[in-house]
Amino acid sequence: MNNSVVVTIPSHPKYLSVVRDITAGIGKVNGLADSIIGDIKLAVDEACSNVMKHAYKGETDKKILLKYKVTKRSFKLTIEDKGTKVNMENMKGRDLEDIKPGGLGIHFIKRVFDVFELDEKKKSGNRLILIKYLKEK
């Protein structure tokens, strides 16, 4: 099993539902459990929302490139944009005990993905690398 899918979406929030459907579909055809698909779908939505808010600062006519690769061992996704550079220091999320609006998205991403890192080699824009390791059946 070695399946790759590449998708480009506009940076408009109305396309988040499209990203969720694609993500869920990729999970489904690769035999992932519904509970894992639900968690991955939420995490990918949050990661794309962050690109729209922080890298593109609400500009809705930019592009977000998603590259999925599923193997027996892992579900890997890279999310690329050409927006403002973000850094890991700003991607910590709020303390879960500190109840206030916002700051949960990063926790939803880290909750499901084992690897959550920015590709420092990318010169302009951002490349977020997300990997979830799968238990072999």
Partner: peptide, 16 residues
């Protein structure tokens, strides 16, 4: 059918 962090933030704001 689905809620993300922005939906939750809306409710937290409303509650506050």
């Amino acid at each position: 059918s689905y809620i993300d962090s922005s939906g939750i933030a809306t409710f937290v704001e409303g509650l506050k």
